[in-house]
Amino acid sequence: MPQFGFSISQPRAVNLDTNDFVPAEKLLRELPELQSCIACGSCTATCTAGNLTSFNFRKVHTLVRRGEYREAYEQMDKCMLCGKCRLVCPRGINTRAVVMKIKRELGDYQR
């Protein structure tokens, strides 16, 4: 096979076909408004926890929607449920419910 000098870093490879979408689909079924997220990042910019650590709410919920749950539960545990993100979200997404749902659904995915 010819080598073109490109490669894929294994840890960053995303294979959507092998992901288990059951929890992600449940999340979207129960909070359909999450589909309207425009990934603007306002939630992350205002986040209380994100201000103090590297926690990034937009990243976590985006990954979860893609079926990538690794670390998502532990990351979500950093959230303080303060509700600032909900107030700034331009799409009016019930972000606190998203946090709770992710935590409830992914309890089994811890570690």
């Binding site: 209380t48 201000n51 103090l52 303080m80 449920l81 303060c82 509700g83 709770m100």
Partner: peptide, 18 residues
Amino acid sequence: DGGSCCGRPLKLSGEVNA
């Protein structure tokens, strides 16, 4: 200049330990 939450929102949601 940024700080922690007071904890009440967590409590109201039932996460009393946290």
